[in-house]
Write a protein that binds this DNA or RNA. Structure first.
Lengths: 197, 197
DNA sequence: TTGACAACAGAACGAACGTTCTTTATATTG
DNA sequence: CAATATAAAGAACGTTCGTTCTGTTGTCAA
């Protein structure tokens, strides 16, 4: 295996430019045009090298896809002054970084606007947007969206004397002790808040 | 051209889930497996329909890529009555992408992991991710990231006797009264929290 | 009960694809 | 200057891809 050098960096940026436009990595033949190269085999060598350097990787189907590092900006925001204990995570990824972080299974994920202050001690405020993964089972301690009296409610799932209860995070609200079955709509997997500007 | 129906929504979900895993749209043959369908020609019909509905589009090379709408999530209203538990249908309600909601100016936005409990009464917890728009000016009442003693700190900007102060949202922490200039790194425009699952 | 249409299945095919192997030109290095 | 590594070209090939066309099945309204 050879080293990653300046030429490869040039090819990488051409690939990044194409990807920025089309959000996909094209065929070797197409990459010949993009790289200004005449042979597919050499394109493959380059991509393999970019893969070794962890800028791209392959799906189980063999298709090339970008990795996190592919989106990392060269030295864009090193404006950070010396000595900072707080980790400033570089804003890698062009788009959809937050979505990607919060949503594992798009088809099972719903966003629900939080109403009321019943979970305020858990740092969940009125107007926040809850990221909910829809499923019917949850673990004790999970914050769940349950359906109680035809109403959605966001509470912590707990157990009391063998029965499930819904515990608010606000002493001003009562613990909900559902009679009969407790229908769970989904589990809280993320929270999003937007500050007016 | 035929209508976009419930079956198509189901196929879209499966495609979204695959894409969330592999960040690419595979070949028709592979999509046969994913969709549970035996003929490539029918897969093409479906993708064409998803294209007509503007969930995916083609590159000049003919490859399918997702559009913005592909990533949008449904936003349910908390006042929605139950009864229709799994109404994932694209019929009504707002759809949006979390990143686009929180980030207006990507080049000026950075994500910072919050450390400590000094803003806990504002619902900002240790480990939360703050969405910061970098700029040097802020208004009274804004939550800002300021640089104090070569240290990043997240506090509410306030004024006291004509001087700027940084007010924590936790009585256990002191108000910061910077002598001399107060350097503002950016303003808090969003907050993201991820719950372990 | 028939006819139309939507939802698939399946075959057929040429073009495109990725891979491998061989060859050649250009630097590098000792 | 010779040995060697890198950068690239090019051909050859079996596989896979997308496309098109033709069939089959189920549904539903007239």
């Amino acid at each position: 295996m050879t080293d990653f050098n300046a030429k490869d960096t040039e090819y990488l940026s051409k690939l990044q430019d194409y990807y920025a436009d089309w959000k996909s990595i094209p065929s070797y033949a197409r990459l010949c045009d993009i790289f200004g190269i005449a042979s597919k085999s050499w394109v493959k060598t380059i991509l393999t090298r970019l893969g070794d350097a962890d800028f791209i990787e392959r799906t189980p189907d063999g298709a090339w896809i970008p990795t996190r590092q592919f989106f990392a900006r060269p030295l864009a925001e090193s404006t950070v002054q010396a000595g900072m204990p707080v980790s400033v995570t570089a804003t890698q990824g062009d788009f959809f970084v937050i979505d990607e972080m919060l949503i594992d299974t798009p088809s099972k994920t719903t966003l629900i606007t939080v109403k009321g202050d019943s979970m305020i001690d858990a740092g969940i405020h009125d107007g926040d947007i809850a990221v909910i993964e829809k499923r019917m089972t949850a673990n004790i301690g999970d914050i769940v969206v349950a359906i109680v009296d035809d109403d959605f409610t966001l509470k912590t799932l707990d157990r009391e004397n063998g029965a499930f209860i819904l515990r608010p995070a606000n002493p001003a609200f009562p613990i909900i002790r559902p009679q009969g079955t407790l229908e769970i709509f989904g589990v809280l997997t993320g929270l999003v808040r937007k500050y007016r500007r």
